[in-house]
Simulated scan of single mutants.
Amino acid sequence: MAGQKSGLMWAVHISVVALVLLWIFPTVGLLVSSFRTADQISNSGWWASLTATEQTIQLRTAGAEAAELVDGVYVIEGNLLTDDRGPGAGLELRSFGTSARNPSAYAIGETGEDNGETITVNPDGSYVYTSVEEPSSSGSRVFVNAVIPPEFTTQNYDTILFSGRGQDNMSRAFFNTLTVTIPATIIPIVVAAFAAYALAWMEFPGRALLVALVVAMLVVPLQLALIPLLRLHLGIGIGKGYLGVWLAHTAFGMPLAIYLLRNYMVGLPRDIIENAKVDGATDFQIFTRIILPLSFPALASFAIFQFLWTWNDLLVASVFLIDASGQTTVMTRQIVELLGTRGGNWEILATAAFVSIAVPLAVFFAMQRYLVRGILAGSVK
């Protein structure tokens, strides 16, 4: 009945909300994790980042230089929290231990004893350590269970972008990715726009066959053409470099670009073009002054697709842009190297991953209003 929504419409709305949440939650989690420390990531999820968490932290007493000999017993006094190697005051201590196997062996204020050594830890972090033997220069380990308040840091971004330490440095990979992505997005758009106009509005023999060939090229797997294209590049002297990867992305993105733009241009009003020809305009003038301005939604929609594919590409960059010195390494490959060498340093990986997706997100939200208009244009007559 009029004014009533069917059950199918409600199902569509619920599905859309579910899909949006499915994409938002991991992105927000990645953003929050990129500002957290390694201990916080390993002990609690990102959703608990605004609440205090209980963690076991390893601290050390002062070394032999701080010991005093009293009645044949070495005594060291200090503060586990505020000493040079301490995390700082303000933590709520719950329990402590002298072994990693039992970090909660003693309550705060009790005295723990082990192999002639004793230690008493007070709520403020101060301690008294005694030993019948001379303490080591590095001090003794103490495991403390403490309530850690929420903490956020920009150190992860400093390490990734500005440390300059080998594989930790993502700034070079960031600019390398921009160097690959921007030309690999502009070149196919420019070439495809000319080709699409010719296939849409210029009469010449074999036009229908060329359109069918473009559609057929859409189903050619990228992996099928990698090795032949690489051999062609090596044969003509391009080798493995920026020019080779630009041309590779152009070749792989051209069929979709031509198909998308041609469908859009065919749907433009014929009267405008015919009137321009009557007024004496050339095909180039019609293309630059009429077709391109009217085709901006289609151009923007393809630019979004091409930018995202190129920015997130790993396969093509690995084949056509290999550099042992790391001078041309892109961000996707840099993150793979971090995964291979960093292991459990999730705060570094989370930061690197969010840096990698930040630019595509900005591009998508800036141009997404043209996306649907550009894709659907020409699909329905």
Results as ranks from 00 to 15, higher is better:
Arg172Tyr: 06
Asn176His: 03
Met170Gln: 14
Asn156Glu: 05
Ala192Leu: 06
Asn156Pro: 11
Phe174Asn: 03
Ser171Asn: 14
Thr153Val: 15
Phe175Pro: 03
Val191Leu: 13
Phe152Ile: 13
Ile160Thr: 05
Ile186Met: 05
Gly166Gln: 03
Ile160Val: 10
Thr185Lys: 02
Met170Lys: 06
Arg165Asp: 13
Val190His: 00
Pro149Cys: 01
Ala193Val: 12
Asn176Pro: 04
Phe162Ser: 07
Asn169Asp: 14
Phe194Pro: 09
Ile189Cys: 00
Phe162Cys: 02
Phe162Tyr: 08
Ile182Lys: 05
Val190Gly: 00
Ile182His: 05
Phe194Leu: 06
Leu178Lys: 05
Ser163Trp: 10
Ala173Asn: 08
Val147Arg: 15
Val147His: 10
Gln167Ile: 14
Val191Asp: 09
Thr177Glu: 11
Val191Glu: 09
Ile148Gly: 06
Thr154Lys: 08
Gln167Phe: 12
Glu151Val: 10
Gln167Leu: 15
Ala173Trp: 06
Ile186Arg: 02
Thr185Trp: 03
Ile148His: 10
Gln167Met: 09
Thr181Val: 09
Val191His: 13
Thr154Asn: 14
Arg165Ile: 13
Pro183Ala: 13
Ile189Leu: 02
Thr185Pro: 02
Pro150Phe: 00
Asp158Cys: 07
Phe162Gly: 01
Thr181Lys: 05
Val147Phe: 08
Val190Thr: 03
Met170His: 04
Gly166Cys: 01
Thr177Asp: 04
Tyr157Phe: 04
Val190Met: 01
Thr185Val: 06
Ala184Ser: 15
Pro149Trp: 01
Phe152Glu: 11
Thr154Trp: 13
Ala193Tyr: 08
Thr177His: 07
Ala184Tyr: 09
Ile148Asp: 09
Arg165Asn: 15
Ala146Leu: 02
Thr177Arg: 08
